[in-house]
């Protein structure tokens, strides 16, 4: 366990540095040092590093930590290895919130960047939270795990359909803004958005560390958890709020990013052969951020000047993992 954490931490440092150095142009460590110590003499490098690189790397780390923790909580809450922000339609709910906000009117464009960012985040979180509540309500009457996933996918389709209707009636200018957002991107996130996202995700992660013990009991059996003095209803509300906060704010600023939320918790459990949240939580954080940094590096297409949408890269990694989960859990999912 300790060795694994150490290895993942070393990998994390290496990948973070690589992510800072690579992009459409390669900036060597000495050039970065020059740019930071003498901004006036290296205006271009200084701009690239502070306005693009640093924010991109931080975004990759925050997304890579937040989405998988959110997915882990959903998998525990629904006792379903296939649950995740994207699969259950939570990300779609967040998209709907964003669409409502973006299409609400051109007058919003006049808002200050800070208010715009906060509004975007708030509506995305609200959308995520409402979908999460809806899916949870349905899950009370439907115990079958496959049906739950179908409900999640349907709720997602519903949100997408509503968004399409809104797109149809919106102005070309707003439409473009929204379509660019749906591609998902780690680059080009404003600094104020990076700050809000980092604060929200860090708060949620710190808070979720306090729930690790109770989540173990909740996952094993709800009634036993009650018997151990755990206030199960409060715990569930906390988990819903925290996972919606993370999935919502990340979707708001980085766009809908698929598969990371569902795949990473599963990889983590397999990596350390336990579902004990006290052990999986730190591993999920490290594995998730490493995976996002790798996806980011791949999306830069080394040597090329174009950037692949991050959503496609995560799907390339994530979709095979989800298929693997289905095959591995076939007996369970059939029940």
């Amino acid at each position: 366990m300790t060795i694994r954490i150490l290895l993942l931490s070393i990998l994390f440092v290496v990948l973070s540095l690589l992510s800072l150095l690579t992009g459409s142009v390669w900036i060597s460590p000495s050039e970065i040092y020059e740019a930071l110590t003498n901004p006036q003499l290296n205006v271009v490098n200084h701009f690239i590093f502070t306005q693009l690189r640093l924010s991109k790397t931080i975004a990759a780390i925050v997304v890579g930590m937040g989405l998988p923790i959110s997915g882990l909580m959903m998998q525990t809450l629904y006792r379903n290895p296939l649950a995740g922000p994207f699969v259950l339609g939570i990300s779609s709910g967040a998209s709907l919130g964003v669409a409502l906000f973006v299409f609400a009117g051109s007058s919003l464009l006049a808002l200050s960047p800070w208010l715009l960012s906060l509004g975007l985040g708030f509506f995305a979180i609200l959308g995520a939270f409402l979908v999460m509540l809806l899916v949870l309500t349905v899950s009370i009457s439907i115990r079958n795990s496959a049906s739950l996933l179908v409900v999640g996918i349907m709720v997602g389709s519903l949100s997408t359909a509503l968004v399409s209707v809104m797109q149809y009636y919106s102005s070309p200018q707003l439409l473009q803004r929204f379509v660019v957002w749906t591609f998902g991107s780690l680059g080009g996130i404003h600094w104020n958005e990076i700050i809000v996202m980092t604060l929200v995700v860090s708060f949620s992660i710190v808070f979720s560390f306090g729930l690790m013990k109770s989540m173990n009991a909740l996952m094993i059996n709800e009634d036993y958890a009650k018997g151990l003095g755990i206030k199960v209803n409060y715990l569930k509300i906390k988990m819903i709020v925290l996972s919606s906060l993370m999935a919502g704010i990340i979707t708001a600023y980085a766009g809908p990013i698929a598969f990371i939320g569902v795949a990473i918790p599963h990889l983590a459990r397999n990596f350390i052969h336990t579902s004990d949240h006290r052990k999986t939580l730190p591993i999920v954080l490290l594995l998730g951020s490493n995976m996002m940094l790798i996806c980011d590096l791949i999306s830069q297409l080394p040597g090329g000047t174009t950037v692949l949408p991050i959503n496609s890269v995560t799907a390339l990694f994530g979709a095979p993992i989800v298929i693997w989960i289905v095959i591995k859990n076939r007996s369970f999912l059939n029940s």
Partner: peptide, 26 residues
């Protein structure tokens, strides 16, 4: 009722009994 303890050992499940006695991280 059954338990859903995929990825938990017997020791892990029995140690649930100590949850009311241990600190926040168990």
């Amino acid at each position: 009722q059954g338990i859903y303890a995929h990825g938990f050992t017997v020791f892990d499940v029995v140690s649930l009994g100590r949850y009311p006695y241990t600190n926040w991280i168990g």
